[in-house]
Design a protein around this nucleic acid. Structure first.
Lengths: 222, 222
DNA sequence: ACATAGGACGTACGCCGTAAACAAGATGTA
DNA sequence: TACATCTTGTTTACGGCGTACGTCCTATGT
């Protein structure tokens, strides 16, 4: 019953996009560990194997999540080739950070999966273009791109609590240090600072340092 | 037969340390995906459930791996309080990189797991001490520590191929860009650079930039 | 000699990803 | 119209996973 017409249930025809969308919802709600084909199917009110008509396997689904989430990366809109290269660089890094802020858990999932995606070469191309127009030679451009990416990715890893290391301590961790005050004088003195989760301000300062250091590198034109 | 005496087989008595050690070997050989209680047990020639006499659950085992691997972090030996703070900072970051180089896959596993470990506060304490003696105020010290950690962690993520993003392209990825030469002039021009996997030199340059940028920050003493 | 405790083990349950065979409607062709 | 094919969803099943539970074996203290 209720199956013949299916009119009331009005089941949308189940597409790759729908599946990915449901998967993202699920990841953001339950975390990356909670992602499974069975859960996604249940979320859509559908048999598990039905998913496989639209997605080859689980890895491809994760790839789909990656592509969808990272689609927000370009174009950062507002890029002006005439502007200072640092301004453009900041815009691009901020675009990354904005999408990471929107889909924190999905972004983490993307990072921790093997992604052979040739994705976002357009973003890389754009970045390299600006670096080149800023007068950096090829080797330096690539290095600069990688340095910025390292910093952005590492910061994101720390923010999301994936890497809960000393510098990203949450409140409870402070207690650990308090238990042995003799050994951790500096950590205790800075407990207030350490307890504050890393935020936009920290990121901005670090980014600013990297950018100005890059800006001081020898270049070809003005 | 061959069971009564067990004299020849000379089975070591199976301890937590032995289990962790076997797990690390397994991760470094087969990758993080290949880590399972059953495989570890098989590696030790032991029943699966025997492991649970020494390790509460899988997560605890991963924690054990993290602690063991990260034990190589301190003390970086050679630290001289009288030396320039940047020298000491480099020594500490290099210590991290050295262990990451020794156990790349385990390190990745550590990063991608939830680690609430209050581990390595001693390293943090040491770093904060050097930053303080360099004249940085508390807020700046914490920011500096976080910036350096972000960079180190992000770089490590990229090196190990976890995040196979544009800037870390391997040879095959280049072909992707080649297929659409119109859109990626810069990427193609720098294909040779991009194909080179990120290495120590890139890391050193980036680290140097961060350190010298930090060195330029306003401080209290000389 | 016997009681006790701790470590190793076998079994079993519920998750997971997915291969394979099947069903049922949609669509193209005569 | 009737038939063939294709698309899409479903059912069943298999092997691997983490681990709760109960059992047995062995070493030790008395």
């Amino acid at each position: 019953m209720g199956k013949k017409a299916a009119g009331r249930t009005e089941r949308r025809p189940l597409s790759r996009e729908l599946i990915i969308e449901a998967a993202i919802v699920l990841v953001e709600r339950d975390g990356a560990r909670g992602l499974s084909m069975r859960k996604v199917a249940a979320e859509l009110g559908v048999g598990v194997m039905s998913l496989y008509n639209h997605v080859p396997d689980r890895e491809a689904l994760v790839d789909g999540i990656a592509i969808t989430v990272l689609a927000g990366l370009n174009p950062p809109s507002g890029l002006d080739p005439a502007a200072d290269w640092k301004v453009n660089a900041r815009l691009m890094v901020d675009a990354f950070r904005a999408t990471a802020h929107r889909y924190p858990r999905s972004m983490h999932l993307v990072f921790t999966s093997r992604i052979d995606l040739e994705f976002k070469w357009t973003a890389a191309e754009q970045a390299l273009a600006y670096l080149a127009s800023a007068g950096f030679d090829g080797e330096t451009s690539v290095r600069a791109l990688r340095a910025l990416m390292s910093f952005a990715i590492g910061a994101q890893m720390m923010v999301h609590g994936v890497v809960r290391v000393p510098g990203t301590a949450q409140a409870e961790v402070i207690e650990t240090v308090m238990a042995d005050p003799e050994r951790y004088p500096h950590a205790i003195a800075l407990a207030h600072e350490l307890a504050r989760p890393p935020g936009d301000a920290d990121f901005d300062r670090g980014l600013e340092m990297l950018l100005s250091a890059l800006d001081r590198l020898p270049r070809q034109n003005a």
